[in-house]
Design a protein around this nucleic acid. Sequence first.
DNA 1: TAATTACCCTATCTTTTTTATAGGTTTTAT
DNA 2: ATAAAACCTATAAAAAAGATAGGGTAATTA
Lengths: 138, 138
Amino acid sequence: MLSKKTKYAFHALTYLGKHRDQKTVLIQDISEEYGISHKFLENILLELKKAGILGSKKGKGGGYYLIKAPKDVALSKVIRLLDGPIALLPCVSLNYYEPCIECKSEAACGLNKVMIQVRDEMLKVLENKTLADILDKE
Amino acid sequence: MLSKKTKYAFHALTYLGKHRDQKTVLIQDISEEYGISHKFLENILLELKKAGILGSKKGKGGGYYLIKAPKDVALSKVIRLLDGPIALLPCVSLNYYEPCIECKSEAACGLNKVMIQVRDEMLKVLENKTLADILDKE
DNA sequence: TAATTACCCTATCTTTTTTATAGGTTTTAT
DNA sequence: ATAAAACCTATAAAAAAGATAGGGTAATTA
């Protein structure tokens, strides 16, 4: 399951996507819309900004805005950013690889091999589905 | 990511699959092979037994054994048993459904719709890959 | 039938991760 | 200047995961 952080990130991105006509959107508008703590959401939006997905403007009249086209924001990118690995095991993660300590030889591990296949199938979906797909359905 | 519990379950099933020639396998044999705490593993094997995947025999000469054919043990079954939902959001889980409190209308939620698609794609893989696939690669 | 062996159960503790909060700093428009 | 808003860092609270302990129960062998 996705963490709340990631779920909230998707909500925020959806909200921002739906309000692309206005220059900026306040954290508060989003936090009220979804009943998310203002401060908690703040951290999430910051991360999305650092990742180059959102832009922001400080001071009065400021706020956040989408910097990328919705079709260029893959689900995989958001999930990796907030939740970490998409792979089901550390030993098959592309971005957060770690060996399994209990594993004597990765090359001889059937579980490893199968999980690589699972990972690739999951990525096929998560890299191709984007924020645009979410917005289309709203 | 899968929990260690689930990963250990797969290791145990793999071990049992590889030793189907012998009548039973001791918990200790598996726990030593993978460096898993005996007691921790005990709980896992118990759950697998209750789910009808493993059988066991008490007393001297006892132990655990696979009760199902490896091809009939889908990854999805093991994951759901030890880890819970496969879906990325509670509101799209088939087996562990819960509404998202922040969501006013599921029918109008684009995120919900997209995550249903993601879930179905994930299930396509996880229901079709089985213990047999793992054993083939060992 | 008695000792052995291993399954079965419950409870608790520790660690890690997630979720949330707090309080101050910097920037911008008016 | 002042108010409004994002930015930053640290910490606390809660929940989940991981691990351990100790015994109870049942079955098998000798």
